[in-house]
Design a protein around this nucleic acid. Structure first.
Length: 290
DNA sequence: CGTGGCCCCTGATTGC
DNA sequence: TGCAATCAGGGGCCAC
């Protein structure tokens, strides 16, 4: 499931291939792939054709291609989205949603998405304030991710401690800090020895610092490893799977021993999904906030 | 406003 | 065997 490391892996692969190329044709094959583009599929195609891709950038789980007219093509992979450059002759995926054809190459960028939670849209850029990085206007509400230079740890810590919510809910809230999904939230909480239901307003500055350090470590290591993959749904830009899965300590390890203390990892239903934790290393708080 | 819950979607898996 | 229920989950949206 693409979180920050997987999206960064895609961005890097994409950047080396599409930066400096001109878009010749765009084929939207499934309406849902552009449902966030209010003006519709034809407008989406028209805005891209003829444009030069300047760069590929990312914030959290979003990535975008900046164009030579100042607009940007914003993409979110959702649950199962892939941006791939299939080798010529490779059979087209059953879940192919969009094809972007470039000049001077016979390969095309394919957007493949089985569960159709992902999508692309075209729009303008906007800087949040003085000296802030410009991001697509429609994601102005997405907070900087922990690997960005502008990530303000002190501010995030203060906002987190002012909340009345659970710690994992806060880590997953993309308007507080972005890029973290269910997998890396569980991994970071395990590293920091903190429980997912810990009320944010009871956290000390030191504990918040610890969990944010863990978040940065987990994300950085996963980026270095090329992202996580559990099944064939996620592949990088060349169609190769990442291999970070082997380094997971809690996610998907229900019943298996904690690598730190040996206790069996538990799985709880949480926020209509799963939360994995070590019952010994991560004590449930007396006053939990699920 | 902050917070939490619902819903969009497909395919693999599980249960009767 | 066959069909239905369940699960996976990011984030927009809406009610409170």
């Amino acid at each position: 499931m693409p979180e920050l490391p997987e999206v960064e892996t895609v961005r890097r692969g994409l950047s080396t291939w599409v930066a400096g190329r001109r878009i010749r044709q765009v084929h939207v094959l499934h309406e849902r792939a552009v449902r966030r583009h209010a003006a519709g599929p034809r407008d989406f195609e028209d805005r891209l054709v003829g444009r030069l891709v300047v760069a590929v950038q990312r914030r959290g789980k979003y990535l975008w291609m900046t164009l030579d007219d100042g607009q940007a093509v914003l993409a979110h992979l959702g649950m199962s989205g892939q941006l791939v450059l299939p080798a010529s002759g490779q059979p087209r995926s059953a879940h192919l949603r969009m094809v972007i054809v470039f000049d001077d190459d016979d390969r095309a960028l394919h957007f493949v998405d089985q569960r159709t939670f992902g999508g692309l849209q075209v729009g303008g850029m906007r800087a949040a304030g003085d000296g802030q990085r410009a991001v697509p206007s429609v994601i102005a509400h997405i907070a900087p991710d922990p690997l960005e230079a502008c990530f303000d740890e002190a501010a995030v810590s203060a906002r987190m401690r002012a909340r009345r919510s659970g710690l994992k809910r806060a880590l997953l809230d993309q308007s507080l800090l972005s890029g973290i999904g269910n997998i890396y939230a569980d991994e970071a909480l395990w590293r920091a020895c903190l429980h997912y239901a810990r009320p944010t307003n009871t956290l000390t500055r030191r504990e918040v610092s610890r969990v944010l350090d863990s978040v940065r470590e987990v994300l950085t290591e996963a980026v270095a490893a090329g992202g996580t993959s559990f099944d064939s749904l996620y592949v990088n830009v060349n169609g190769e799977s990442g291999w970070f899965a082997r380094d997971l300590h809690v996610y998907g390890r229900q019943g298996q021993p904690c690598t730190r203390c040996g206790s069996p990892i538990r799985r709880d239903a949480f926020m209509n999904r799963s939360s994995y934790s070590c019952p010994t290393c991560q004590r449930r708080p007396r006053r939990a906030h699920d």
